[in-house]
């Protein structure tokens, strides 16, 4: 009965349309919005919190993204319709969830430009700015981690200034070094592994977003705030060394969030 179905809910005086879709024979994809914005993000976060409090035992794992949550299951243990029913129940209860009033803020040191940020020049000239202006704009913004995905610990960040937006490279590189900080259209992000990639690389951080030797292995989580701060060559080496000796602590503080005005 839930196959491909839209359901409408009135939440905080707004009609929210959600959609249940099968993703193959072992996953349910629930869509709760159609854009990247705070209000959609909060819907995802509230349902995520509700699921943590009241998990669906048959669900192997669930994966929150910008505007959807995917539930992996085995048809051996629960039917698709039962699963949709259980998810819908939690969606309705999630209305009562208040999103947290505090969040973590993580400071990420970045060595901008030069051989670490080989595309900084291009980003600057594309936007008719100086390299210093690009660095200033990039490092004076607070970013929100909307979701983690792609490779281990890779954050999808929102909040970048359109002043430094730059289209993806036409020819992706075969290998972008781990820690590279890049810009693609209106997004900025940090490569958590050395992978092929088409983003414009403006700098590199010595911080490892994924380190199986550390606890937790993944540094960032959905809902975190991120600030970048510029460092020089010397500081980069110092942090890198300290990191390897396990004597470097990433700066993580807890900050108050503005009262949510949207639902």
């Amino acid at each position: 009965m839930y196959y491909n179905q839209y359901r409408k809910f009135l939440i905080h005086e707004e009609v929210i349309r959600i959609q249940f879709l099968p993703m193959g024979d072992h996953a349910l994809h629930l869509i709760v919005g159609d854009r990247i914005d705070l209000s959609t993000h909060r819907r995802v976060v509230r349902l995520h919190q509700q699921l943590k409090q009241d998990p669906i035992p048959e669900v192997i794992e669930w994966v929150p993204t910008y505007q959807a949550i995917t539930f992996f299951y085995s048809p051996k243990t629960i039917t698709y319709d039962q699963l949709c029913f259980e998810v819908e129940k939690r969606w309705l209860q999630a209305k009562q969830q208040t999103t947290s009033l505090t969040t973590r803020r993580i400071e990420i040191p970045v060595l901008y430009g030069g051989r670490w940020g080989f595309d900084l020049d291009e980003v600057a000239s594309y936007n008719q700015l100086s390299q210093e202006e690009v660095i200033r704009i990039h490092s004076q913004t607070t970013y929100l981690v909307y979701m983690i995905g792609f490779t281990p610990g890779f954050p999808y960040l929102g909040g970048m200034s359109t002043q430094i937006a730059t289209p993806r490279k036409k020819n992706p590189r075969n290998r972008v070094p781990r820690g590279s900080v890049g810009i693609a259209d209106q997004q900025t992000g940090i490569y958590s592994l050395a992978t092929p990639g088409g983003w414009n690389i403006i700098g590199r951080t010595p911080i490892q977003l994924f380190d199986p030797q550390q606890q937790p292995a993944v540094l960032l989580q959905m809902g975190d705030q991120i600030r970048f701060f510029p460092i020089d060559d010397h500081e980069y080496r110092e942090i890198e060394e300290a990191y390897q000796n396990r004597s470097f602590q990433v700066s993580i503080s807890v900050v108050k969030l503005d009262e949510p005005t949207e639902n």
């Binding site: 192997i60 794992e61 669930w62 994966v63 929150p64 992996f72 983690i148 995905g149 792609f150 490779t151 281990p152 610990g153 890779f154 958590s192 994924f210 292995a217 993944v218 989580q221 959905m222």
Partner: peptide, 10 residues
């Protein structure tokens, strides 16, 4: 490695 995809674990 199921169970950690929400952290990007492949």
């Amino acid at each position: 490695r199921m169970g950690y995809q929400s952290q990007g674990i492949v």
